[in-house]
């Protein structure tokens, strides 16, 4: 998953805060500073779980405080699920 795929999903699932440019260099910006609280992230990762048929642990999602950390975690899970397939 790429950053733009992730930001598109965030936008779709939880909207976009005013004054935030999700298309800018946001890879290491805290999700909280992008206007996304834990519920917004949960809503988005729930959608990713469905779309990609993977499971993301709530605890690990909660630790992913930036798009980079979240992407790393998602891509790791995707790789594991492809290996298993």
């Amino acid at each position: 998953m790429t950053l733009s795929e992730l930001t598109n999903l965030l936008r779709e699932c939880a909207g976009e805060a005013e004054g935030v440019d999700l298309d800018g260099d946001v890879l290491d910006t805290a999700l909280a500073d992008l206007g996304y609280d834990s519920l917004a992230v949960l809503q988005t990762t729930g959608r990713i779980e469905r779309d990609y048929d993977i499971r993301l642990s709530d605890d690990t999602v909660a630790e992913a405080t930036t798009p980079r950390l979240l992407l790393d975690f998602i891509n790791e899970s995707l790789a594991q699920s492809q290996q298993a397939a």
Partner: peptide
């Protein structure tokens, strides 16, 4: 309504 509030 702000975009962030629409889904919720």
């Amino acid at each position: 309504i702000p975009s962030r509030l629409l889904p919720q």
